[in-house]
């Protein structure tokens, strides 16, 4: 099923990013693998979207292509009005730096930089001064005010992820991509991180796209998009953990 997933709220709101008939094909002939098979999807501004699906469904590939870390082999990717598929390497780098925030599953921080330096890294790379007020707000929100001058090795796993979330928020990006942000955390620390992300959308009007395996994590989102075999197979608004779990069980059949 190739469907244009439509969000009832998308009509009045802006679209932060969208994929138009995007495909990603590895290899050729017999060995051809379609990681993305003509996907079209939109991500609304100021919304928290989760992407779910079994391993190999193409959810990470979709995220990478949307985030400018990878390129589609067919179709188009838009960030706002900018078409990413035609940007060159340098332009992609600058887009990532200035307009996208990242939270990875692990190894989110540069070990030689302290928490504050890690948070402001994208801005430092751009040669920009961070907005002091916003920075303080972000740091307060994630509760890192007394840990700013600690190096990553001096922080717990949960604290490290909080620094990563703060970094993603600090430059006020158009879009934040989170790739299994709670995958390496215990449930308590994971809940904390997801809470921050929820607040970022509700209080700071940020846009988050998150790939996850975890139905509980997905339940924090406004909307869940389900992928299988490189295609969008379903979506769910205002998900709960149980509903998501039920939906996932059906993939097996």
């Amino acid at each position: 099923m190739t469907s244009v997933a439509s969000d009832p709220r998308s009509a009045p709101t802006k679209v932060a990013a969208r994929a138009v008939n995007a495909s990603k094909i590895y290899g050729s002939g017999e060995a051809e693998v379609r990681a993305l098979d003509g996907i079209s999807v939109e991500f609304a501004d100021c919304a928290f979207t989760a992407i779910m699906g079994p391993s190999g469904s193409g959810k990470s590939t979709l995220l990478h292509c949307l985030a400018g870390l990878d390129r589609v082999t067919g179709g188009q990717i838009f960030l706002g009005d900018v078409e990413m598929s035609s940007a060159n390497e340098k332009q992609l780098t600058l887009i990532r730096r200035d307009r996208i925030g990242f939270v990875f599953q692990a190894f989110n921080l540069i070990p030689t930089l302290d928490a504050e330096e890690n948070i402001t890294l994208p801005m430092a790379l751009a040669g920009r001064k961070p907005d002091k007020e916003w920075f303080d707000t972000v740091v307060r929100t994630v509760g890192l005010a007394d840990r700013l001058h600690h190096r990553p090795s001096e922080l717990s796993g949960g604290q490290q992820q909080r620094v990563a979330v703060a970094r993603a928020l600090a430059s006020k990006p158009d879009l934040i991509f989170a790739d299994e942000p709670t995958g390496n955390l215990d449930s308590h620390a994971g809940a904390e991180i997801l809470g921050f992300m929820r607040r970022a959308v509700d209080d700071f009007r940020q846009t988050i796209v998150m790939v996850t395996h975890d139905p509980v994590a997905a339940s924090y989102a406004d909307r869940v998009v389900f992928l299988a075999d490189g295609k969008i197979v379903d979506e769910m608004l205002d998900p709960t953990a149980d509903l998501v779990l039920d939906r996932l069980k059906n993939f097996g059949e």
Binding site: E89, T93, R96, F102, F104, L121, L125
Partner: peptide
């Protein structure tokens, strides 16, 4: 390698 990947992901250019 991973660190370099991360730096590049969050926007470090090749020349940087």
């Amino acid at each position: 390698t991973r660190e370099i990947g991360l730096l590049r992901a969050v926007g470090m250019t090749r020349s940087q």
